[in-house]
Every structure is written in C-alpha cells, then in structure tokens.
Design a protein around this nucleic acid. Structure first.
Lengths: 315, 315
DNA sequence: TAAATCCATGAATTTCATTCACGTTTGGAG
DNA sequence: CTCCAAACGTGAATGAAATTCATGGATTTA
C-alpha cells in the first residue's frame, strides 16, 4: 500500500547532490547495488522512471523532480524531529530556531539571547538568516520556530508580537552638511549616494516611508552587505545610509557618523516576533517572547536623540 | 541512523484517531503485536516514551504530541505524492487543489473551472475550503496548489495574480427606503441590522473600507453562513448585507433584492489567485491562471450598475 | 585500446518486521 | 465480588524483504 518511504527521498536527494548512484550509496552507508535495487523496485511500484539514464549520467524525470522537491522539504523535518526527540530524551528542552528577516536586528537579538541562554540553560538557540521561501515560508515549513521581522502578517496560524520600537534615521559622515541638522527632508537627498542593504527598494523603509512618497530618487544607490562597511563608507563621506538610531549610537565610538531625523516627525518602525500559533503554548518559546517584550522599555528609551529620562508607565 | 519512519507516524496518527493499539492495528492491516513491537523499538531507540500507559488508555507524552503534529503534517504529503505519481504513470497531468478563502467566490470559481475541465481533461480539480492554518498556510504546507483570496501577500515564495475585479455593494430588500438610491453613506446604516458571513469584522470589507473609517457601527450584526439564507433574510426586510454586485445580479431572479453603491465612489475589490513560485512553471497551473485572467473582462463589465457598453482597450 | 567507473542483474544471504502463542492487566457486567 | 472480554506486552519462530556478493555490459577517460 504505502510505497514511498523516507529512504527513497534520501536516495533521491543524495543522488542529486552527488551526481551518481555510487557516490550516493557511499554517503548513505549502503552498497551501490542496494540503491540500484531499491530504486528499481520503487520505479516498478509507482510505474514511473525517476531518472532518465543517458549514458552514465542521471537526469531527473518530471516525477524525479517532483520527488526531489518533496525530499528537500520533508527530510529536514525528519532529521529535526530526531534531534528534537533526542533532546527530550536528554531532558533538554529543545532548540529554538530563530529566523531573521531584518539585517540590523542581529545586534538587538544578541542582547535578548544572552540573558535567555542564562535563564534557559537546557534550550539551544539557533539563528538562521537565509530561507528559500522567505521568513513566513520558513515558519510555515517548520524550518524555524520564531521569526524576527519588520513585516508582521496577521493570518490564521501565525501570531506576531511587537517587541521593539525604534526610529529609523539618516546616517551622515563628519563633514556632511546635514550633520547636526534637526531633520532632513526628502529633496535634500536627491543629489546623494544612498547606501543600503542589498534588498529590493520596496522593502527599504527609507524608500517606502520617505523618498517614494515625495517622488525623490537619490542620485546613486549602492548596495552593501555588512553594517560595518556601510558605516565605514558613510564615515568617509562616500554616501549616506538609513539605519536604526540605536544601531548608530551603538557604533558611535567605532565610526565617526551622526544620526539625522528623517522628516519633521521622524520615521518610526517596529520589529515583530512571529510564531506558529500552537507553539505559543511552549513555555520556553513564551519565555523568549516575554524576555524580548520586557526588553522593550530600555530599547525604546534610546530611541530619542536627546538623553530623555525614562518615563514611567508608558505601555 | 535514521530511526523515524513513515510507518511510525502512521501508527501514531492512527492510535490517536482510534484510541487503542488494537484498533489502530486493524486499520493498518497489522496485528496488535506488530504495533506493540514497532513502538517498543522506536521508544527504545529514541529513548523517550510516546504514550503514558494509564491502565488501558494511552495518553501522548510531550514527545508523542510532537510526533502527532508531525504526522498530521507529513502523512498527507506522502499520500498526496503517491497519488500524484500514480497520475504521472497513467499519463494524467495531476490534481489542481484549489483553496477558497472567499465565501462568495464559489460562484465565480465554477465559471472558471467548467471550461478548464474541458480544455484539460487529464487534470483533476479539487476545491477545498477549510484550512487549519489559513489559506496561506495551506499553500506553504502543500495542502493546496492555488488559493483564491481577496488578501494577496507579496512574500518571497508566493506569487499572486489579480484575476477578478468587482464592486462590493449593499443589498437591500424590496421595501427598504434605500432601494433604488444612487448610493448609501455610512451613517445611514447606523440603525440597520447588518448581515454578514461569520468572520471577524476586520476581514469584512464593509467594515474596513466603509463603516470603520466613518466610525459607524450598525445597530445589530447577524452572522449567517450561506448566501441563500442571507439574501432570503434581506429580501424579507430582516436586514441589509454587503455582497459583490455580480453575485447580487446572479441571484436577482431568485430573491427580490437590490444593490446600492457603497459611498459616492463605490467600494471596489479584487480577487487574487495565489500559488507557490516554483509551481508557476507547471503548464496546467499557468493555464488555470490564464483562463481566470482571461475571464476578467466579462466579469469586470458586470461591475457597473448601469448596463454600460463594453469599453475596448481597458486593462 | 586499456583502465577505470558506473549501473544493472540474479543469486545468496542476512536482517528485521511480522506473526504466533501466551501471559498479565484492566475495566465492566452480572 | 468475581468472572470475562478486551487490551497490551513479550519472546520465539518465521518469512518477506532489504542488502550484499559476484558479475557483466556500457561509458568515459587516459
């Protein structure tokens, strides 16, 4: 009745990865013959070839490609499940797999994870940054358990909690005319070189909330991967960037850069923590969200340019 | 090395469903002893009990609950894969699993599916309406291949195509004072009974796009499951409803109800067809979207209250 | 053209899932 | 309270199925 087994998916994935049955067999601690038989039997049972044998090379058929996709989806879930069960056995609590969809949040995350690791010694934390189907897909596909993102998605099955408010500011170098200005208006960036992380402009707040509404496009747009290089370039007058104010202050000692408010009222942003609804029951998951929420006050305080006193009673 | 197999998930699911090993065994065409052995071995290998044996009843442990969730996620994918492979073998093209997240879209869908079935005789169509994790979750979880929804979600991994524009109108009965009015303003509904489908008000356009912005709440709010009953009640003066104009016209012969434009400019809506990005390559999936898009013109024509002539060249 | 690889195949073998047979426990009916 | 039916666990036996061994043909490469 049930013909398709985990081993078949493993074989299909490994053959794709290694390019030959023999190599795949080695990897799976089986003989080449075993694989050949296993595949022959499967192909016989389902009535379709999985590979087109062209001389020595194997090319997946339509069915093969379909199974390959399935293997890549399901096999990680099996292995993660086994890890998880082993953790149950050892009395450990599990692994919290956190996905990041927000470049500069890494700094913030570290501040949350540090005390979390102390209070939950039996929980492993794993941070991932690249997802084939985006953060939401990773959440739905059980690749991660928590998602740090600026774009919440209120859909059945998922739950998002705001954990961090911050102000997005323009960053300028020491010799920049805007240095020390109260704020900057969109047209003042028309002749600038704007440095951003390498993502679509539709996902950059400086565009969606500041430049695009005003119909302004900067003279040049430079994508840079890392925050350090970005600030280094800004510090040497090679352009301006938009980053969270707290991050700029964080790096204040390292680079000679200054924040300038975006627009008269500033651009404010929120970071959310997303999870699958059923996981809201898990204590160590709740605890992480709780910790992140609790951290909100001090972080929010650093939102203000002037050293504002902490105001009590603010939600 | 690999301990967790498909059969284990099947056992766990079946035990949960039937409540006992013996019953589960019958279902799986195995002896009770076989299950007992299989489970004992698994529990031994992973080092955790899956059920707490309390007398005669089995209660899942934490690990058991975890595996149960996994079983419910993965087993359907295995069986669907086998069906799909069988279809490949028979030369059939596959099954298009369409999810609906939009109550009144059923009528529209039928009009698309009918010609589709004719032009793709080797493709099966399956329409589903309930999803544990919402339509988006069903798409990501490979429960469905296409999603009909009013809420597109532009996220990596998914692709949405608008396939249908329509006007949302107020529906009133024969004796209603608003009957025949050019349009209705929010405050005119303050004393009405509003009949809607039973979903959160945040997902009802009449609230989000009409009442809520004006700060109006109707006197009473009645949730009704089916369109027929809804229109029946409206026809008998028990309240007013908000529905697509084309749907109202569809039912014009059956119930004595009339459409009234919502606000001076009307409330316009779009229906989208969502799919996983890799599936955009599949010809019969493309074809469905193509057919749905092509149907757009006639549908859009019926959007207008007055019998407008078809205007050529309109995107 | 020889050597090296690679895959397929059939027979031999070994593993391991399943069954059989039986014992123990549990929960309910009388 | 007792007895019985039903349920689960266990060990030995078994048999099906996966794996290996041995081998040959095909393809690539040196």
């Amino acid at each position: 009745m049930a013909v398709l087994e985990r081993i078949h998916l493993a074989i299909i994935r490994e053959v794709e990865a290694r390019g030959s049955l023999t190599a795949a067999a080695r990897q799976l601690h089986l003989t080449q013959s075993a694989l050949s038989h296993a595949i022959a039997k499967l192909e016989d049972q389902i009535g379709v070839k999985i590979w087109r044998r062209e001389g020595r090379s194997l090319e997946p058929t339509q069915a093969g490609a379909f199974l390959l996709g399935m293997a890549n989806r399901l096999l990680p879930q099996f292995s993660h499940a086994e890890e998880r069960l082993q953790q149950f056995a050892k009395g450990e609590r599990g692994t919290l797999r956190i996905g990041m969809e927000c470049h500069p949040c890494y700094q913030w995350l570290l501040k949350i994870v540090a005390p979390y690791l102390d209070s939950w010694p039996r929980v492993e934390v794993d941070v991932r940054q690249k997802f084939q189907f985006g953060g939401i897909g990773a959440l739905f596909g059980y690749e991660i358990d928590l998602l740090v993102t600026p774009d919440p998605l209120y859909k059945p099955g998922l739950r998002f909690t705001p954990v961090f408010d911050y102000e997005q500011v323009l960053v300028v170098g020491p010799d920049h005319p805007l240095r020390g200005a109260d704020f900057v208006l969109p047209h003042q960036l028309a002749e600038e070189t704007l440095i951003t992380y390498p993502v679509a402009t539709g996902r950059l707040d400086i565009y969606t909330q500041f430049l695009t509404p005003a119909g302004i496009t900067p003279r040049q747009h430079k994508p840079i991967e890392t925050t350090d290089i970005m600030l280094l370039m800004v510090g040497h007058g090679r352009g301006v960037a938009a980053l969270p104010r707290w991050l700029v202050e964080e790096y204040a000692g390292k680079f000679d850069v200054s924040p300038v408010r975006l627009g008269r009222d500033g651009v404010t942003k929120q970071i959310f923590l997303g999870l699958r609804e059923p996981d809201a029951e898990i204590d160590y998951v709740r605890a992480f969200i709780g910790l992140a929420s609790a951290y909100r006050q001090p972080a929010a305080a650093s939102l203000h340019a002037a050293p504002t006193r902490v105001r009590p009673g603010k939600a």
